[in-house]
């Protein structure tokens, strides 16, 4: 019993860490642009398929190490260009936040059907990053889980460092906190919007590579991820990075316990109940700002 609970906690921590990586990216884009990216789940699948392509048909030397090396710049460019080509022109119109949601919803469906057309409707699986287990008494940890946890947390630490210690990172925060003030000090908003979108694409794409090893790559699976990422950001407080971090671990843990005790079918119901109760009592979420 005790060891089962320890297993559940570990599973919650691992899922929570990857969710945190993804949700922070989503909340960042919302915080900066005030528009919601509904294609976020499809970018997660882009990560899975990208890794699959490089590892299976291409057979890239260096395995996952090379995959990350190639993926980070590629995801950045994809995110940057999509923002510049599809989203940036919308901002010239009134009510553009709503138009961005419409467009990203369309983009999400386009990508999902695109995956089906290119990769077929059946799920694909990614090879594990690393084999083997670590035994601590009766608790057994998969090396793979440890690596996923370390990479997710490491990714977030890198991201936090960049946000607080680089000029562009500070500019991103400035635009999120006061767009008018950012304009006054000469921060080019268009560049910051595109860069933020690109960074969030990296975060969710990496999340896709990490988590798809434990689950599968499902061409229609983006909705589930979108729901999760959205629940975390709304629960944590839209636009709040620390809120998303806490929310990701709380929901990761809740998911693990509900899945273990009641069955996986109740997981989404439990997380959505938590969300609805939270938003009813506190509409701005855990740490959102009024």
């Amino acid at each position: 019993m005790v060891f089962e609970i320890i297993d559940v906690i570990i599973s919650g921590l691992i899922n929570g860490s990857v969710y945190a990586l993804m949700a922070v990216g989503l909340t960042l884009v919302y915080g900066v642009t005030k528009a919601f990216n509904f294609a976020y789940g499809s970018f997660y699948n882009m990560g899975g398929y990208f890794a699959w392509m490089l590892l299976i048909p291409v057979g890239l030397i260096g395995g996952y190490f090379s995959v990350f090396f190639v993926a980070i710049p590629v995801f950045f460019v994809v995110g940057y260009l999509l923002e510049k080509i599809l989203i940036s022109p919308l901002r010239k119109h009134d009510d553009w936040e709503m138009k961005v949601m419409m467009l990203t919803l369309g983009l999400s469906l386009f990508m999902d059907f695109g995956y089906q057309a290119v990769f077929g409707p059946r799920i694909k699986s990614l090879p594990g990053m690393i084999e083997g287990t670590l035994e601590l008494g009766q608790v057994v940890l998969f090396h793979q889980d440890i690596v996923i946890f370390i990479l997710s947390v490491g990714g977030m630490i890198c991201f936090g460092w960049l946000l607080n210690n680089t000029r562009t990172g500070m500019a991103v925060q400035a635009v999120a906190q006061n767009p008018a003030g950012a304009k006054i000090v000469g921060i080019p908003k268009d560049f910051i919007f595109a860069a933020t979108f690109a960074i969030s694409t990296i975060m969710v794409g990496l999340g896709g590579i990490l988590l798809s090893q434990k689950t599968f790559i499902d061409p229609m699976g983006s909705t589930n991820i979108m729901i999760k990422a959205w629940v975390i950001t709304a629960f944590g407080g839209m636009g709040s990075i620390s809120g998303s971090l806490y929310a990701a671990f709380i929901l990761g843990m809740l998911e693990a316990f509900v899945g273990w005790h009641f069955g996986m079918i109740y997981v989404q119901i439990a997380t959505l109940t938590l969300l609805l109760v939270t938003l009813t009592i506190r509409p701005r979420g855990l740490m959102g700002r009024e």
Binding site: M170, Q173, A174, Q177, N178, A180, G181, A182, I184
Partner: peptide, 13 residues
């Protein structure tokens, strides 16, 4: 440069 009447600072910095 413009120095705004309503300051336009970055509040959480």
């Amino acid at each position: 440069t413009y120095i705004a009447e309503n300051r336009e600072l970055f509040p959480y910095m």
